[in-house]
């Protein structure tokens, strides 16, 4: 049984169909990269998986349990699926440490003292040990994004969704964030990334899916998809993206 299973997921905004029957299996510990032009439906698909957007049709299974049942309380699911956003979305009125502690305190009911050793270790391991008490606007983009990743990790998620998390970063800061992803992969985290970093997708992904107009046009191991794409649309996209 796959860790996460999408079956014919359809998402519409009014008349516009953004996800048009997407099916996808993600095994435990796998890294899946969603590539495709802006507007292809990558980000929306991630938001649907995290139940931030209700889906019109299809099912989403987490460990075989249908989490897309209308009326299901999304809170429990979201606590199990982490998400990191393109624009970091740290809470500006809290220090980095408070940002990370908020959800475990409120959702798991733990105290600051209980959490501190573990979270301190998390900050240390992502080279943020001396940044814990800084406010987001005192951090660089790369540091903010790493804090956002730590914030997601502190909830012990089973799956993490990354929504173009390097797109807002200067080129020299992209590397430090991608290193974090490689580290998580090594630790066996199940991850789905919407990304424009083709080099990273080729290096780290177990599976790459090319999306166009809300559909997965082609999917496969990075080697097959990048070196020998079968579909003409994939070829055109890659020719542009890898130029």
């Amino acid at each position: 049984m796959a860790k996460l299973e999408l079956r014919g997921v359809v998402k519409r905004f009014g008349q516009v169909t953004v996800c048009d029957g997407i099916s996808l299996d993600v095994e435990k510990g796998q890294t899946v990269c969603l590539i495709g032009a802006s507007g292809a439906g990558k980000s929306t698909l991630l938001r649907c998986i995290n139940l931030l957007e209700p889906i019109e049709d299809g099912e989403i299974f987490l460990d075989g349990e249908d989490i897309s049942v209308p009326g299901l309380d999304p809170q429990g699911v979201r606590a199990r699926i982490g998400m990191v956003f393109q624009s970091y979305n740290l809470f500006p009125h809290m220090t980095a440490l408070e940002n990370v502690m908020l959800a475990p305190r409120r959702v798991h009911g733990k105290s600051r003292a209980q959490l501190l050793p573990e979270i301190e270790a998390l900050f240390q391991s992502f080279d943020l040990g001396d940044r814990m008490h800084n406010y987001p606007d005192q951090l660089s983009g790369g540091q903010q994004q790493r804090v956002a990743i730590v914030r997601a990790l502190a909830m012990h998620p089973e799956v993490i969704l990354f929504d173009e998390i390097t797109s807002a970063l200067d080129p020299q800061l992209v590397g430090e964030v991608l290193d974090v992803l490689l580290k998580l992969k090594k630790q066996g985290m199940t991850m789905i990334l919407a990304t424009h970093e083709m080099g990273f997708a080729r290096q780290a992904a177990d599976k790459v899916c090319f999306l166009k107009d809300g559909q997965i046009i082609e999917e496969g191991a990075p080697k097959e998809l990048f070196d020998a794409p079968k579909r003409a649309e994939t070829k055109t996209f890659l020719a542009r993206a890898l130029k």
């Binding site: 809470f91 908020l102 997601a152």
Partner: peptide, 13 residues
């Protein structure tokens, strides 16, 4: 609204 998204995605009510 992205602040809301981020907070909801962490499992907050």
């Amino acid at each position: 609204h992205s602040q809301r998204s981020a907070a909801l995605s962490l499992g907050l009510s």
